[in-house]
Design a protein around this nucleic acid. Structure first.
Lengths: 250, 250
DNA sequence: TAAATTTGTCTATTGATATAGACAACTATA
DNA sequence: TATAGTTGTCTATATCAATAGACAAATTTA
């Protein structure tokens, strides 16, 4: 029986500071259940020993998480976990923002951040099956659940067919409802490509993240039931608050 | 010296060093097509200006990427992009390692790193529908394509039903073939949960990554066509080399 | 109340990160 | 063959990150 060494996983000289790595591990530990919600974290000395670093380094990590609203430290008592569980965002043939999070949050909605008309870039044109440079409408949106940002998306629609979808979106706050106004009763997700990277400046601002955070990125094409592409989208999810649940397919 | 505020997503005092952030951006730029394959990168002075940092900081980023085998620098000529495209790993009802990468690589196989018999943890027991503490066999594997590691997975199987699957795996190098020896002709993916995090020490070693790298994590349950759970697994993919393609469901 | 436990603050030192400037080495081209 | 453009190396300095130790302040427990 081979036992893997309890990978301490703290890497020096990596370009990622030790306190940031430890903060990430604590976040991960919370979401995985190593550190129980509302319970006290191990004392700083114990954490320092576990990760093989100085107590002050652990303190840096903790103070960053206190800033982020994940932990609360109380002198003489201990440090406590505040954070909620990661939301589980379902992805499947019928991916819809609002219905997907039902039951996990009491409130959720989409905010339209910006919209514009522009010539299609190559990947957008390919995704929508248009000629290069055809006019498309871009909608930039943010998804919020219980007043916390949980997604940030850009969606592209053929301008000729969906002229005015930006107004529909602003009024209804729903992609599904907006598409319905243009006669799209139903749509399906044709493809989804998934990747991950560090958050960039726009992600940090829109998703209310701290530098160094990770975002999950999905690039997807939605089609009508008869296979006609109607929407190309790129969505970004904060990995510390959201996991993606790929639905079993029928 | 006056600080430039060029809002180009480089964050100071974030716990992630500037050179690491710039290296990540260059990697992202390559995969997105900002920097074309085999072409020269902009000169160091230009990059330094673009990101608002000193030329030496850009050089740190570049030298890290040269170490990783992504770039090649030639004195007097320029710095060139070597990197291959990300592999696109399909995930769907019939997720199989080898067939999924067909056409993208000339060679691929699975290596058995370790195996053990252990009592099921809570999540494994839940996933397999077993009682807490029931004995399970754990297989630790690494997937390789063209001699580069592209995945690292732990799979759990009920020990009573699949006694000896470790040997079958060592002999066949295939999960599908090993399961067939136990009468499992076909299996389907019931659920997949996806997340991302920084690579830990074991990831770095097994996947041949540099500190600070990101891994995509999938947690999945495979079932027989009649819905009986047979395998619980956690897989880790290097985000810089792999993207996950969620197949459209039928 | 006294002792033990835990977080908070302070000083000091070392190494990694980032900036700055100068110049060498190499390549392509006018 | 100059010259411009590019990467490579060196020195110097300032700031951030991490370690180390000591003690204060607050809370819980014996």
């Amino acid at each position: 029986m081979i036992e893997r060494q309890q990978a301490d996983s703290i890497e020096r000289r990596s370009g990622v500071s030790l306190w940031r790595q430890i903060a990430d591990r604590i976040l991960h530990g919370i979401s995985v259940g190593d550190f129980t919600e509302n319970a006290a974290l191990p004392p700083e000395v114990a954490l320092a020993e576990r990760y093989g670093v100085n107590r002050h380094t652990v303190r840096s990590a903790i103070s960053a998480l206190v800033q982020e609203g994940v932990l609360r430290a109380e002198q003489g008592r201990g440090t406590f976990v505040l954070s909620r569980k990661r939301l589980s965002y379902p992805i499947g043939a019928r991916t819809r923002f609002s219905t997907g999070l039902q039951g996990q949050t009491s409130e959720r909605h989409i905010v339209l951040l910006a919209s514009s008309v522009e010539p299609a870039s190559q990947r957008v044109a390919e995704g929508l099956g248009l000629g290069r440079g055809a006019e498309v409408i871009r909608l930039e949106t943010r998804g919020e659940a219980d007043k916390r940002p949980v997604s940030r998306a850009a969606g592209w629609f053929e301008a000729r067919r969906f002229a005015g979808i930006d107004k529909a979106m602003a009024e209804t706050g729903s992609i599904t409802a907006s598409l319905a106004r243009f006669g799209v009763e139903d749509y399906l997700r044709q493809s989804t490509v998934l990747s991950a990277r560090h958050a960039d400046a726009a992600d940090l601002a829109d998703l209310d993240l701290q530098p160094g955070a990770i975002v999950l990125v999905t690039v997807a094409v939605n089609v009508t039931p008869d296979g006609q592409p109607i929407q190309f989208s790129e969505s970004r999810f904060p990995a510390e608050r959201v996991e993606l649940k790929l639905s079993a397919n029928s």
